[in-house]
């Protein structure tokens, strides 16, 4: 199993809870806005701590409240593509791309920067500052940054949400190729059914 998740977190009046396991390929968390899908991704990434539960990805336990295991985010080897890109505004595209690559142990790097840049078609953007990128360009750079950090799995939080129709199709094709060519497990959040019909091997309802 790629993802085994069983967590709960109480935030004020709201209870975010999920229990699922998922196999290879792209697994989608599907549900209305505000159902806690992003919180679930944050928990898998280690950016949000569940009250209790267990998170295991490809056989590695990332969090287990019973066993008192809670790996810090930098040790989870996850490539997180955020909904808003979240590029570092003070670094050029090149330095954004290489940020995680430089930190990853050599043995974990499975993609070279040149290959990633060619794959994403962002060679002409390398010297630009993030604020000068369009939504689609920024999202491609964010995907590249995540892929280059040597991740063992990817988390993608509505990566198409801020894009127009043409760009959506382009990024969607990229994600399909990533899924098929790299064979990396992907946990994908969306509230768009059509998007998931095309991309996802399994759909987990949330909320």
């Amino acid at each position: 199993m790629s993802f085994e998740v069983d967590v709960s977190l109480r935030r004020g009046e709201r209870e975010i809870a999920a229990r699922f396991s998922a196999g290879e390929g792209l697994t989608a968390l599907f549900g209305p806005s505000g159902a806690g899908k992003t919180s679930l991704l944050d928990m898998v990434a280690g950016l949000l701590r569940p009250d209790r539960g267990r998170i295991c990805v490809s056989g590695t336990v990332l969090f287990d409240s019973a066993a008192r295991i809670d790996l810090p985010p930098e040790q989870r080897a996850c490539g997180y593509v955020f909904q808003d890109g979240r590029l570092f505004p003070h670094r050029r595209v090149r330095d954004n791309l290489l940020y995680g690559w430089k930190l990853a142990p050599a043995g974990r790097r499975w993609l070279e920067p040149d290959a990633a840049i060619a794959f994403l078609g962002i060679g002409h953007l390398l010297e630009r500052m993030p604020r000068s990128l369009s939504g689609g360009e920024a999202q491609r750079v964010a995907i590249g940054r995540a892929l280059l950090s040597g991740p063992r799995f990817l988390l993608m939080d509505e990566p198409l949400a801020s894009l127009d129709a043409a760009r959506r199709d382009e990024i969607m094709r990229l994600i399909e190729r990533m899924r098929d060519e790299f064979g990396i497990p992907i946990l994908y959040v969306s509230h768009d059914r059509a998007e998931l019909d095309r991309l996802a091997a399994a759909v987990i309802p949330v909320g």
């Binding site: 950016l47 985010p73 930098e74 979240r86 930190l103 950090s149």
Partner: peptide, 9 residues
């Protein structure tokens, strides 16, 4: 959070 998930302590 993004920096941490990219491997920065």
């Amino acid at each position: 959070g993004a920096a941490r998930s990219l491997g920065a302590g």
